[in-house]
Amino acid sequence: MSAREEILERLRRKASNVEMPGAWQSQRNFPDLAERFTASLTAVRGEVRRAENLEAALVEVGTILEEVSAKTVVANNESPLSDVALAERWPECAWHIVGQSSGDLREFCAGADVGLSGVEAALAETGSLVVHSGVGKSRLATLLPPVHIALVPVSCLAPDIFTWTASRNQEAPMPSNLNLISGPSKSADIEFTLTLGVHGPKRLVAVLYE
C-alpha cells in the first residue's frame, strides 16, 4: 500500500462527522478605517503618508524617492501605477517597469533602492497590505529592495482579517502568491531587541489616498 493510502485509510477508519462551526463574525467597528490603519501600521514601525487624491499621492512618492536618494526603482505594472508615466515623471531614476522593461527582473530587484507597488486590499485593524502575484505583479519588487512604497486607495480598506476573508470571491482563483504585509521586515532574535530589515524591506511606506 502506498504511503498515501496507508495514511488515509487509517484516518478513514477513525473519521466521524462533526458539525463545523460557521465563520467568525468580525467584532470590529472602527469609526474611521483610515485612522485605524494609520495608527496600526505606525505602531509596527511602518510609515503612512496621507494624500487627498492620486496626484497628491504621487507627489508624496516623489518626496520619498528624494528622501532615500533613490537611483533605481522597480515598479509593479498594476493599478494605479500602470496609468502613470513613471520614467517620464522621475527621469533621474533608472526604472524597471514589471512586464515592460527589458533586462533581468530578479537582478534589477536585488539591486534596486525602492520597490513601488499597488495593493489588492488593506486591513485597518492590523495595518496590513494585501499584495498578489500575477501579470505585471512581481513578488520580488515588494521584497528585495530596502524600501517598499505602496499606493493604497482608502476605498480598499477592510476593517480586519475576518471581513477580508469573508469578502473573498470564492470563484476567483487564488494567485500563486499572496502576501499580507503588516510592517517592515523585523527580527527580535538577538536578545529580544528589535531590528528592522533583516531580510525584507527596512522601510515600508503606505501612501494612503482618497
Partner: peptide
C-alpha cells in the same frame, strides 16, 4: 498579525513575472 503572511498556491502561473 505577523509581519508577513505568505500564501502559496501552486507554482508561478503563466504571466507571473517571477
Amino acid at each position: 498579525l505577523s509581519i508577513y503572511t505568505s500564501v502559496i498556491t501552486g507554482p508561478s502561473r503563466a504571466g507571473d513575472p517571477d
